[in-house]
Amino acid sequence: MTGPLTTLKVVEFAGLGPAPLAGQLLADLGAQVTVIDRASGPAQPEDVNRRGKRSIALDLKSETGLTIARAIIADADILIEGFRPGVMERLGLGPETCPDRLIYARMTGWGQEGPLAHTAGHDITYLAQTGVLSLLATADAPPRPPLNLVADYGGGTMFLVYGVMAAVIERAVTGRGQVVDAAMIDGVPAMMGLIHTLMAQGQWRAPGANWLDGAAPFYRCYRCSDGRDMAVGALEPQFYAQLLGGLGLGAGDVPPQMDESAWPRVCAQFAGIFASKPQSHWTQVFTGTDACVAPVLTMEEAAVDAHLAQRGTYTVVDGVLQAGIAPRMSSMSGAPARAPTGPGAQANAILAELGYEATAIAALRAAGDVT
């Protein structure tokens, strides 16, 4: 393994959603991530979040399985778990049972306390409860969920990793770990600084009437004659001027850019122009300009896009298209993403590191403590 995190040992309790992605991102940058799974199984190349990790499958209902888990935790720098509050405590693996230097990272939707802490939810639930989903509505349609990117992975994974790295830095000073309570309902509002500013300044109006939510003619998508789309993001005046030039318009052909009363009319004007030619035409017109106009590509097209291909933004591992390692680190230039291994695949090696002899490992497997 290479990368800036090669000195860190992470134990991740298998789960769904943002916690596995956090483990993957740490593993991508060199951390040794050991997943404690519930049962062994074959490797699944398409399970991208398992890439670069190793695994042991333990029966955590047995005292022996718990003893092994505690030994793995004792050797770790960071623990990641994404269960509902209280689950790890009921297993006897809560923060109070762990070494003081351990960074105990907890990933939930609602947080560790509060009236909703023990209820279920998904990305759309947390977006709704924080008020952010209301901003994705339009005047004549309810909000559309932005996949599960905003709450699960933006407000969840990224803030979990951010908290863990902050705790690593503090531990280098104090020698002590701490609990990181990463909640999606906290992370989503934390990303809303610009919108909160605009609201406080009285510059944010009803959903679907603002310059970042599709109302402005210079920040939205347009359909082309072939049914494909172009994305326009010409916010700044100098970029807007290049947009007009590419559309064959001059400043005198449209009202001033920030004349909001004219936006519906300008949107219709731009839509008619884009609809007159296919996406390939507009791509040729705007590529290499500062108009901030780009073709809306399919995932397959994006994978072979010239710019993304040169950077290796996408890669193929064992036949599975997935993102390359991000961010780029000079200490690991060109390092490839590592294929996922199966649940439990490294059990023998992990147990040997803990001091178990081959006969003891065989006994653990026979007893079902290690599956």
Rank of each mutant, 00 (worst) to 15 (best):
T2N: 02
G3L: 13
G3S: 10
T7R: 15
K9D: 09
V10G: 07
A14W: 14
G15S: 15
A19D: 03
L25E: 11
L29S: 03
L29P: 04
T34F: 09
A39S: 07
G41T: 14
E46G: 07
N49H: 11
R51F: 04
A57I: 13
K61P: 01
K61N: 07
T64D: 12
T64K: 11
L66F: 07
A69C: 07
A71S: 11
A74C: 03
D77T: 14
L79I: 10
L79E: 10
P85C: 11
V87C: 08
V87F: 00
E89S: 12
G92M: 01
E96P: 01
T97L: 04
D100F: 00
R101P: 02
A105G: 11
E113C: 02
E113L: 05
P115W: 06
A117V: 03
G121N: 10
H122E: 05
H122K: 10
H122Y: 09
T130H: 04
V132M: 07
L135D: 08
A137G: 11
T138V: 02
T138H: 03
P145N: 15
P146Q: 09
L147E: 04
L149E: 08
A151L: 02
D152K: 08
G155T: 01
G156C: 06
G163H: 09
M165Y: 00
I169R: 11
R171D: 06
A172Y: 03
A172W: 03
G177T: 10
Q178D: 01
I185Q: 08
D186Y: 07
G187L: 04
V188N: 01
H196Y: 06
T197I: 03
M199G: 13
A200I: 09
A200T: 15
G202Q: 05
W204A: 09
W211R: 15
L212I: 15
D213L: 05
F218T: 13
R220F: 01
Y222P: 04
C224I: 00
G227F: 09
D229Y: 14
D229K: 13
L235G: 05
L235K: 14
E236V: 04
P237L: 07
Q242D: 08
G245D: 13
L249P: 03
A251V: 13
P255V: 08
E260T: 12
A262T: 12
P264Y: 05
A271P: 08
Q279L: 01
H281Y: 14
W282L: 00
Q284A: 15
G288H: 10
G288T: 12
T289H: 00
P295A: 04
A302D: 12
V304L: 00
V304I: 05
H307A: 04
A309H: 11
Q310K: 13
R311P: 08
T315L: 05
T315V: 08
V317D: 09
V320G: 12
Q322T: 11
P327V: 05
R328G: 01
A339K: 15
P340L: 03
T341S: 11
G344T: 13
A345E: 09
N348K: 05
A349V: 14
I350S: 00
L351C: 00
L351S: 04
A352Q: 15
E353I: 03
E353V: 07
A358C: 06
A366R: 12
D369G: 05
V370S: 11
